[in-house]
Design a protein around this nucleic acid. Sequence first.
DNA 1: TCACATTTAATTGTGCGCGATTGAATGCGG
DNA 2: CCGCATTCAATCGCGCACAATTAAATGTGA
Lengths: 152, 152
Amino acid sequence: MAKKQAADAPLLLGNQICFAIYSTAHAFNRVYKPLLDRLGLTYPQYLVMLVLWEHDGVPVKDIGERLFLDSGTLTPLLKRLEAAQLIKRTRDTADERQVLIALTPQGQSLREKARTVPQSILAASACSIAELSAMKNDLVALRDRLNAVVGE
Amino acid sequence: MAKKQAADAPLLLGNQICFAIYSTAHAFNRVYKPLLDRLGLTYPQYLVMLVLWEHDGVPVKDIGERLFLDSGTLTPLLKRLEAAQLIKRTRDTADERQVLIALTPQGQSLREKARTVPQSILAASACSIAELSAMKNDLVALRDRLNAVVGE
DNA sequence: TCACATTTAATTGTGCGCGATTGAATGCGG
DNA sequence: CCGCATTCAATCGCGCACAATTAAATGTGA
């Protein structure tokens, strides 16, 4: 009823979808933390492992495109995964600009221990798979539109 | 059809809602960046300003509860906002454990320059307000369930 | 072939985000 | 009133995230 309130509505924290996404991302992180601690991984490291479990032996560039991360983020992260004996980094002999990331046997076997993680997350979300899947699709569509704007 | 694929589905990056949220949050950040650069703010700083534009003179604790951030994050961030002359930090005389955060005149007037930000974000999302509002509500509900799990 | 642009990863600097700890101020139970 | 737990902000350490720069390798056109 107050016109003042309507004019201010866009600047109210509770009205911003972006804060909803931002705060939900952090909430997920807090749920993941104890689960990933058992694997010795951080969440971004877990994402890299997910990529490698799908496609082993890929260049840093590919991982970056998949996760929307650049070398400034990935290079130190990958060095930590290498120090943890989960991956090996080797220059591509065919194109020495590229560094290929390959799983070690430990990195491969970690996949089995990681299988229980998604179920725990699903349980914590207290949501049906259908609901989550629908939200996921909406989010991905939104993300792709946002990235299209940034990429001009 | 392959049973193998079904068993692996939960570990596929593309199937994880959490990665959808994570990557959408980063996409939002990239869209916000040039807009907030004009205000001299980072996104978390912008969130703090949103809180203060709603309730001026609040303790650090309140800001933290509103944004789900702790003093380890907020203390240095608030010092930077103070260095930028947007806020003032003063010990509460009634309870000297608390630090009250108040807007400076510059901090208050920045609100006017910030009014155009939400429209730009809305335009970049290429989404109706109704759609965004529905997603926001779903996300907040999900976030609150996740936080409830973490809080035991 | 050779200058020049492009691609790729690494590096540097700044700012979160959070767990863990510290220390001061307050509240409270006896 | 006094000891003790609690609350609150600050501090420290680590790991992202990203802009900007660097340097090496590759691709390209004259």
